[in-house]
């Protein structure tokens, strides 16, 4: 029980810390949103008026507490550029980003996990060399380039795929898939290339352990040893890896949304940064933070499901 309480406490602290940092960073960053909005022609009184209107002249702590209070009520202030609530903008864009991210994540899990187990069971020198080259390649390929390659060779040639824009799930499932699969693959492929080896390592490490020898001494078949015992034990390190992957996938959506012109949160982030649209940027950064922190929290909870030793701590 203490374990869970501590995790929840940590969750709250992390979110609070990030909110302070996010807020502070945009105060320090050069560039003034008001000047950006009004353009170079504006005179000082105009600027001053708008600053007052936006509440930018209040003390910083007050601005911060206003903003953070809004987090709980869902009111993140108004976007400077779009003149509409940040939360509305996020709600509009979130389904796109979450669709790409979760699809990418599912692909990574479905491929990297079995692949990692497979190569762990069949290791030899040749496959080791091949596998590490695959990993090098996966690390070296920039995702915008991979995205363009996919557009060029698959998107342009296979009728099913659309290489531009987004069709909501509610409109057409097939349509949604046609816009999401390639972006998801763009994120997933480098992740798979790098992370399946982590799975392999996690499995191989287990194979060396004493308890595996005990199970072998009971005469159990290799399949049972791997898929029942080793996998459940290896799931503890593997889960850590997938927590990491999820965070990277969420970050990966930012670039991929640019390449595939997907109207997601990532795209919004990039435009809002160049526009110095601080309320919007802060809102998006908080969204990313909360997603990542929540994932870590879920991972921690899952640890305790898998590993009975953790529940006691």
């Amino acid at each position: 029980m203490f374990y869970y309480l501590r995790r929840i406490f940590l969750l709250v602290i992390t979110v609070a810390l990030v909110s302070v940092i996010t807020f502070a960073v945009f105060q320090i960053l050069p560039g003034d949103p008001v000047r950006t909005m009004l353009g170079t022609e504006a005179d000082e009184t105009q600027i001053e008026n708008l600053r007052n209107e936006l509440g930018l002249n209040r003390p910083l702590y007050q601005q911060y507490f206003d903003w953070i209070g809004g987090l709980f009520t869902g009111d993140l202030g108004n976007s400077i550029r779009f003149s509409m609530p940040v939360s509305d903008l996020l709600m509009e864009r979130l389904p796109v980003t979450l669709s790409v991210a979760s699809m990418a994540l599912v692909i990574v899990v479905l491929v990297a996990l079995p692949l990692g187990i497979f190569v762990a069971r069949r290791q030899n020198k040749v496959s080791d060399v091949v596998l590490s080259s695959v990993t090098q390649l996966g690390m070296a390929i920039p995702s915008f380039w991979l995205g363009m390659i996919l557009i060029l060779y698959i998107g342009m040639n296979v009728d099913f795929f659309r290489i531009n824009g987004y069709i909501p799930w509610s409109e057409s499932i097939k349509g949604a898939l046609s816009t999401l699969v390639l972006p998801a693959l763009t994120i997933a492929i480098p992740q798979i290339a790098v992370k399946f080896r982590y799975v392999r390592t996690a499995i191989l490490e287990q194979m060396e352990l004493d308890y595996v020898r005990t199970i072998r001494s009971k005469g159990l078949p290799e399949k049972l040893i791997v898929y029942k015992h080793i996998l459940k034990n290896a799931l503890i390190p593997i889960l850590t890896i997938f927590g990491l992957i999820t965070a990277e996938v969420v970050a990966g959506t930012i670039i991929v949304e640019q390449v595939f012109a997907l109207p997601g949160v990532g795209q919004l982030l990039i435009t809002s940064i160049s526009y110095r649209d601080f309320p919007l940027v802060q809102g998006i950064v908080m969204y990313i933070t909360i997603t990542v922190v929540l994932i870590n929290f879920i991972v921690d909870m899952l640890y305790s499901v898998i590993d009975p030793r953790i529940r006691l701590r």
């Binding site: 005990t214 001494s217 009975p308």
Partner: peptide, 15 residues
């Protein structure tokens, strides 16, 4: 059948 030296690590910790 066989038993081993390390009782601490010879059993599967998650079963």
């Amino acid at each position: 059948a066989m038993i081993f030296q390390e009782p601490m690590t010879s059993l599967d910790p998650v079963f």
